[in-house]
Design a protein around this nucleic acid. Sequence first.
DNA 1: TGAAAATAAGATAAACGGGTCTCAAAATAA
DNA 2: TTATTTTGAGACCCGTTTATCTTATTTTCA
Lengths: 151, 151
Amino acid sequence: MVLSKACTYGILASLYMAREATRSKDYISIGRMSKELNISFHFLTKILQQLTSAGILISMKGPKGGVALKRKPEEISLVDIVVAIDGMGLFTECLLGLPGCGEEKPCPVHDDWANIRAKLFHTFRGKNLAETASRIDSMNLRLSSEFPMNI
Amino acid sequence: MVLSKACTYGILASLYMAREATRSKDYISIGRMSKELNISFHFLTKILQQLTSAGILISMKGPKGGVALKRKPEEISLVDIVVAIDGMGLFTECLLGLPGCGEEKPCPVHDDWANIRAKLFHTFRGKNLAETASRIDSMNLRLSSEFPMNI
DNA sequence: TGAAAATAAGATAAACGGGTCTCAAAATAA
DNA sequence: TTATTTTGAGACCCGTTTATCTTATTTTCA
């Protein structure tokens, strides 16, 4: 798996929040999100706690509480979410796992992989939550794994 | 991790074998390879058994036994090894893990990821063991994680 | 002020990947 | 034929990730 499960859930939830943020300024309940995105509530809670302590979300307890994006969705890139949960490893590590692989002492596939992982980084660094989420409605995309439903 | 540990070990061992194959026609002992590549013998054995049953290697028991590439190193691509061990998932699955994500019902990052994973596939499909292994000597590359040594 | 609603936090469990160990089977060579 | 060397196959262990469960803690609102 390229991204951990936690990371994909974090991205889906962030896109969900970006979409909601265009409609209201309220906090979004994790319980509601977990139902609509078909993600285990407790697991999602922990992931969003990570995003909160990474400074990407803010949270509020109590009735009317929940989580919300701290900055504007246009200012948050998909890479921000990935890095907050999975770290930079995907964009820095050797494909063959050789420690210290780099320009000076490359592994046999270093150049190819460095090229692809840079493309990966720049592509997803250039995708912000607002634009990505807005395409969900206009292009009839999907966020949930629930089959018939397209949240 | 993009490739499983087993898969990276399989690639390193395959490159090692491709390199040896240019020098002799003998079987290569897994014990020797595990020492030179710094990979656990029993674990490497299991991985090479997978490559054997996938038809990429042939094996021979007993003294003077070991494993060898079944086809010529020029005819084996890195993708062959990846697919034999990790399967096609890396090249087919949705980055966000949504089942059934595709052209008809794409996830919000489908197009970008499909583009990158296709590039990944074609890049490593185009790299054969012979050419990749030959660069190890000529360009002073590395196969092992043992630090000072460059096998 | 108290009940309810929500996140926070931590213990626990299940699943999986990575890795070890043991014994069997086959081939060689003395 | 027998000892040795090698791969084959499976059970087993350990740590991390994924997921669940329970118990605070905070906030709102009647």
